[in-house]
Design a protein around this nucleic acid. Structure first.
Lengths: 188, 188
DNA sequence: CCCCAAACCTACACCCTGTAGGTAGATCGA
DNA sequence: TCGATCTACCTACAGGGTGTAGGTTTGGGG
């Protein structure tokens, strides 16, 4: 019997691909084992079970999203930066629905602080540099941006916008417009 | 052996209570059966399995939320209506975290149109009556309101705001302020 | 009073999680 | 080159969830 030569990272990538293809709830130790041609028990030598597997997929997704947002925002400011940031998430959510869903899973304090969380915060703060939002309101503005974009993509993915016209995609630029207008005229 | 006298609705209420107490992922046919003192197989006589159970919990949550939002908004308009509407959801999300989580689950077209979905739409539209948002932008404004509130509550529940000061609760009125300002100066 | 439909049961097959303990392949020192 | 050892992967199993098939009890209507 040849050895598969598994590593935790490789298993996580397989799990992420599985999430995108079949849905996050199909990501199981058994499914990953099947995918790499190994018995489920073997996977436990590399990962601490199903929770660990999903946590790692969450961290992978957060890392990838921070990276793409940062790339998209490079050299932009103001509305351009806002749009690039938001659209990077939307593009990612469409291309990788399972990973995107995984990115919503709660993480423990340790994992959150050690992972890409802080990077996401600083990207959001960077957007505010193009607007006149007072320093003490930065947290609130960052939370508002995150809430609106996350909420939109989550509802869009859940199909909540599918039962009214026009298509959800038409509301996307309007949502960016609204956030831009809001940041320009931030209520003090 | 006495009969439990199960009904689908009763089982769904038990499932909803279980969701609030133990988390949505603990809502299983087996757990509900245990809760009402019956064998799992018996539950299948009243429900079409786990998916049906969860779908019904989703519908229950959506109905309850529409009802509470409507009650809270009665007799209010403008910013008052907006705040009452949003806060009704937040209060519900805190009081019934499992039900609230269930309310995010995607529904099929049939279920969505037959359930409380349309009622939620008309409540959101009612908020816009207090503002000068042109009719053709109503859909976009409704989607924006829904996205922001849903996103905020979802991130708050996931603990995404727990790792920065101040507490998430401090950002809540600021979020309402922002939405109010946005609707007042809606960008055309 | 009896009968029968519904309510609930047992038993089973199947899948996923996770542990215990065994086997085989790679690697390193002599 | 040959063993010793490490470890990657295995089999076997316990436990719990889903869902079906088919049996038994209960209680209300004729």
């Amino acid at each position: 019997m040849p050895r598969a030569g598994l590593t935790p990272d490789q298993l996580v990538v397989v799990a992420a691909a599985l999430a995108d293809r079949d849905g996050l709830d199909q990501v199981t130790v058994s499914a990953v084992a099947r995918q790499v041609g190994v018995k489920p028990a073997s996977v436990y030598a590399h990962l601490d079970g199903a929770d660990d597997l999903l946590r790692r997929v969450t961290q992978l997704a957060l890392r990838e999203m921070a990276e793409r947002a940062a790339d998209a925002m490079a050299g932009r400011s103001g509305r351009d930066a806002l749009e690039a940031w938001a659209t990077a998430f939307r593009t990612y959510a469409f291309a990788h629905p399972g990973r995107y869903a995984a990115s919503h899973r709660p993480l423990g304090r340790q994992d959150a602080l050690a992972g890409a969380g802080p990077r996401h915060t600083s990207l959001s703060v960077a957007i505010l540099r193009g607007y006149d939002v007072p320093e003490r309101d930065h947290v609130h503005a960052v939370r508002l941006l995150g809430a609106t974009i996350h909420g939109f993509l989550d509802l869009e993915a859940a199909g909540s916008f599918d039962h009214s016209a026009p298509p959800a995609a038409d509301s996307w630029p309007r949502t960016i417009d609204a956030l831009d207008a809001l940041l320009r005229g931030w209520p003090s």
